[in-house]
């Protein structure tokens, strides 16, 4: 078992960064925590500070104002860190990619480990993505 696997062996703590999004992805992420889907049964917990997080979820297109803040968060995070881009916006910029303030997509700014496409992805898809990522050796 490598060092990285060792770090991600137990409960993953997740920090959620919402860029210039339409909120749907954010809501579906929160929805994962509520009784129907209940992510916490996998030990996955949403935390309030990036310094406690193992996973950084990024959704929404990243505009010029968000870009520096995202970078700063990435630098503040303890490594190793898994970065997950959620939704069409997170993966490619989606419908906002031609916008005048667009500065992304996420993978141009920080390295991304997993992409969960969809607009918005269903909570099931988000859970499947994170579980797959956690199980990857």
């Amino acid at each position: 078992m490598g060092f990285k696997d060792y770090c991600f062996r137990k409960s993953l703590w997740v920090f959620h960064f919402g860029g210039a999004s339409c909120n749907n992805c954010d809501i579906e992420i929160l929805d994962c925590l509520t009784p129907r889907h209940d992510l916490e049964r996998f030990g996955i917990l949403l935390v309030g500070s990036i310094r406690h997080a193992d996973v950084l979820l990024v959704n929404g297109s990243i505009n010029m104002r968000d870009k520096d803040r995202l970078l700063e968060l990435y630098h503040q995070a303890p490594k190793p860190l898994l970065v997950v881009a959620i939704g069409a916006c997170g993966c490619t910029g989606g419908i906002f990619a031609e916008g005048m303030t667009f500065a992304g997509p996420v993978d141009k700014i920080i390295p991304v480990d997993a992409y969960i496409p969809g607009c918005p992805p269903k909570p099931e898809a988000i859970i499947a993505g994170i579980v797959k990522l956690a199980g990857k050796k």
């Binding site: 992805c25 505009n63 303030t101 607009c119």
Partner: peptide
């Protein structure tokens, strides 16, 4: 912080496409 330039984007889309854009103003 959430400025996406939607009004401007809308001018580059056809009327049918604008519906998909405006529904993504707010989820």
């Amino acid at each position: 912080y959430n400025h996406r330039g939607i009004e401007k984007l809308s001018e580059s889309k056809s009327y049918d496409q604008v519906f998909f854009l405006v529904e993504r103003i707010c989820g």
